[in-house]
Amino acid sequence: MGNVIEELNIEVRKRRKKPYNKNVEIIINPDLCKSCALCVFVCPTGVLEMVENKKNIYNYSAEAVAPEYCTLCNFCVYQCPDFAIEIKERKEEK
């Protein structure tokens, strides 16, 4: 799975075109996430990447490394087979 992950990470970084700057909080539940990378695969704007994570039995896990690009499309939430992602939009404190 290793090289597939590297290739995927390279590809998703190219998707980061225009920051959306939504004030979002992307929560990935480590107890449920199985590091399958589908969220990274489907995120249209490259918000997520698979990053090294020794604590994880697959020794990597998904992380929202570029949240500023999140458009709240929820593709990652829909695709996640493990009910592991939740996206919250933090209201602007005026």
Partner: peptide
């Protein structure tokens, strides 16, 4: 967590 393999479509379909 359920018992399906990482990346299996069944969890997505269940959602």
């Amino acid at each position: 967590p359920h018992s399906w393999c990482p990346g299996c479509g069944i969890g997505t379909i269940m959602q």
